[in-house]
């Protein structure tokens, strides 16, 4: 018994990537980008506002943070809700005191259920984040269904907030083969699903330009505190170490770097956790340039045009 001979054919064996979505580009070989005021590090905070239905279909798979026990899983449902009613208020108060602006990837279900929360966000940036945490985009998904999901999610955020909303993070960062095309079709300028870079890069779609932004799944409260079970003080240390390294790299290369920090109010908004974030941000803020995803994208794009890149 042998494998079919086609198993040893390598059609995409070539220089660069095995697909045409983006160009192979080692970080050290790229032209520098610089941040306003000569800041070394841009601080981009994303706060996810999510709705986890009590009765998930889980089709075709569950996303992280979904219900765990048999129905009705009040325990996990109400703990997620805690984030949107208590935890997020702790974050907003902290951002107000430190004069920070953040991006809020927001499920359309949150916008529909709690429009007042979107009004509380004031000058923060809303980012498309799908319908809810039980509607993943996935390979093989029906095109019309995905188109409707994206159009409806964005329209809901735009209607409720009045913001243009031109950024996107897919729920669970899960995509179909055509998600990028459908995002561009719906007026999205940047997205943050691919976790392969620390800097923005140009993503290729059949419908035109889309910027891939380095939204972090690594420096994320959910990953570090919940999945890895590290201590709150360790999370703070990891933020500070990330910042210190990026600042050194920026100084050495002369080009700006990005500290992307991902937060979930149901995780970091707990009373015993918020203090660690507070201490880390107070330190980082001394030298970082705080910016939202959309603004960062535009600053980066402007320099690509100037350099002809």
């Amino acid at each position: 018994m042998a494998l079919d001979p086609s198993y040893l054919r390598y059609d995409m064996r070539r220089y660069g990537m095995d697909h045409d979505r983006y160009t192979w580009s080692p970080l050290p070989t790229r032209p520098n980008v610089v941040w306003p005021g000569g800041a070394k590090v841009a601080l981009w905070i994303s706060v996810h506002l999510e709705f986890f239905p009590l009765n998930p279909a889980g089709t075709p798979f569950k996303l992280p943070g979904g219900m765990v026990t048999p129905y009705p899983d009040l325990r996990h449902f109400t703990l997620r809700e805690y984030g949107n009613r208590v935890g997020v208020q702790r974050l907003l108060r902290l951002f107000e005191r430190l004069q920070l602006r953040a991006s809020f990837p927001t499920n359309a279900a949150v916008a529909r259920r709690i429009p007042s929360l979107l009004r509380d966000l004031g000058g923060h940036e809303l980012v498309g984040h799908g319908r809810d945490m039980d509607h993943p985009h996935y390979g093989g998904m029906e095109e019309a269904a995905e188109r409707a999901l994206i159009a409806d999610s964005l329209a809901t955020l735009r209607d409720v907030s009045g913001q243009a909303v031109d950024g996107w993070i897919s729920p669970g960062k899960s995509e179909s083969q055509r998600t990028p095309e459908l995002l561009v079709e719906n007026g999205v300028r940047w997205f943050g699903d691919w976790i392969n870079d620390d800097m923005p890069y140009q993503f290729v779609t059949a419908n035109g330009s889309l910027v891939a932004m380095p939204h972090s799944s690594e420096l994320s409260d959910r990953q570090i505190l919940i999945d890895y079970r590290h201590a709150e003080s360790e999370f703070a240390d990891q933020i500070l170490d990330q910042h210190a390294f990026l600042a050194r790299e920026a100084a050495a290369t002369g080009g700006g770097r990005i500290l992307a920090l991902t937060l979930h109010p149901w995780v970091i908004g707990q009373p015993h956790r918020i203090g660690a974030l507070e201490r880390a941000l107070e330190t980082v803020l001394g030298s970082a340039w705080n910016v939202t995803g959309g603004e960062l994208c535009r600053v980066w794009e402007a320099q690509q045009k100037l350099s002809g890149g």
Partner: peptide, 15 residues
């Protein structure tokens, strides 16, 4: 089965 248990209304932790 319900998407929301309907046990409480939204009440932000502020003011």
């Amino acid at each position: 089965m319900k998407a929301d248990p309907g046990l409480y209304d939204y009440w932000p932790y502020r003011d």
